[in-house]
Simulated scan of single mutants.
Amino acid sequence: ITNDLLRCGATINEINAVRKHISDFKGGWLAKKAYPATVVSLLLSDVVGDPLDVIASGPTVPDTSTFNDAISILKKYQIWEKAPESIKRLLLDGLKGIEPETPKEGDEAFKKVRNLVIGSNRIACMAAKEELARNGLNTLFLTSYMEGEAREIGTFLGSIIREILHSGNPLSTPCAVILGGETTVTVIGNGKGGRNQELALAASLKIRGVEGGVLASVNTDGVDGPTDAAGAIVDGSTITRAEKAGLDPIRYLMNNNSYSFFSELGDLIMTGPTGTNVTDITVLVVV
């Protein structure tokens, strides 16, 4: 179910709404089952905006979603009909009140719970900003709410690089713009890649021939999609180099095959699994 939702471009909030209603501990159930014990949750947020009920599917937080939401999401992405019968039966029983709804605001179990976010995308972005500034760059932390279709975001970020070089707006060079969040990929091809690699490939088309601009985009857990790469790095020469190597960047993009594209060029960012995840970071450097 999770893989099907990811392939359809569902948001993490939508995915978690479904997962909470087919789990014994997500969606507040861990707090409910631990009650009357005192529970302290130390949270690493892998969700844009750090909503407590969505991080790790909110095992110790009141759930704001419902069985009806979960069913509606599966139908929205045309997954309902092919879902396992056991999951459909569970969700329908919940809709009828046969299965209990996830614990909600006001449940006494949450009176003995404390949730603390100790790591987040914003914290990681600010650390990146400080390091880039330490190296002499003018810096701008633009947002930790970057969402949307990866290839469209990549094109937009490429336009920021071009704007900086053209007008010095919003920063004068040398500079770095830092963004965080989590984009999505609507899979239409049968290639291999991840959202950060697809974002970078789209950006490379926008900055083709531009001198002085670089974009790198990575997943902080070191694993971008179903690949062993954290992400990719591009500049104004990426497309020229690709075409000289006989690669058609548009074809790779349309086939969601960004991993193969960057593998051929040697432009994948390989960190290995980092052991943590605070979603994605994208950095634009312009000199």
Results as ranks from 00 to 15, higher is better:
Leu6Lys: 14
Leu6Ile: 14
Asn16Val: 09
Arg19Met: 15
Ile22Thr: 15
Ile22Lys: 15
Ser23Thr: 09
Gly27Trp: 02
Leu30Trp: 05
Ala34Asn: 06
Ala37Ser: 09
Ala37Lys: 10
Val40Phe: 03
Leu42Met: 03
Leu52Arg: 05
Ser57Asn: 12
Ser57Met: 10
Thr64Gln: 13
Ile73Tyr: 00
Leu74Lys: 05
Lys75His: 02
Ile79Phe: 01
Ala83Glu: 07
Glu85Cys: 12
Ser86Trp: 11
Ile87Phe: 06
Leu90Met: 13
Leu91Val: 00
Leu92Arg: 10
Glu101His: 11
Val113Gln: 01
Val117Ser: 02
Ile118Glu: 00
Glu130Asn: 13
Arg134Gly: 06
Arg134Ala: 07
Arg134Gln: 06
Gly136Gln: 02
Glu147Arg: 12
Gly148Ile: 03
Gly148Met: 03
Glu149Ala: 14
Arg151Phe: 10
Ile153His: 05
Gly158Ile: 01
Gly158Glu: 01
Ser159Tyr: 03
Ile164Gly: 01
His166Asn: 12
Ser167Ile: 00
Gly168Ala: 00
Cys175Ile: 01
Gly181Asp: 06
Glu182Ser: 14
Thr183Glu: 07
Thr183Val: 12
Thr184Glu: 12
Val185Gly: 09
Thr186Tyr: 13
Lys192Met: 12
Arg195Glu: 10
Glu198Pro: 09
Ala203Asn: 08
Ser204Lys: 08
Ser204Tyr: 05
Leu205Ala: 11
Lys206Asp: 10
Arg208Ile: 05
Gly209Arg: 10
Val218Asp: 04
Thr220Leu: 08
Val223Glu: 08
Asp224Ser: 12
Thr227Asn: 09
Ala229Met: 05
Ala229Phe: 03
Val234Thr: 04
Val234His: 04
Gly236Pro: 07
Arg251Ala: 15
Tyr252Arg: 08
Ser260Cys: 09
Ser263Asn: 14
Thr276Asp: 11
Ile281Glu: 03
Val286Trp: 01
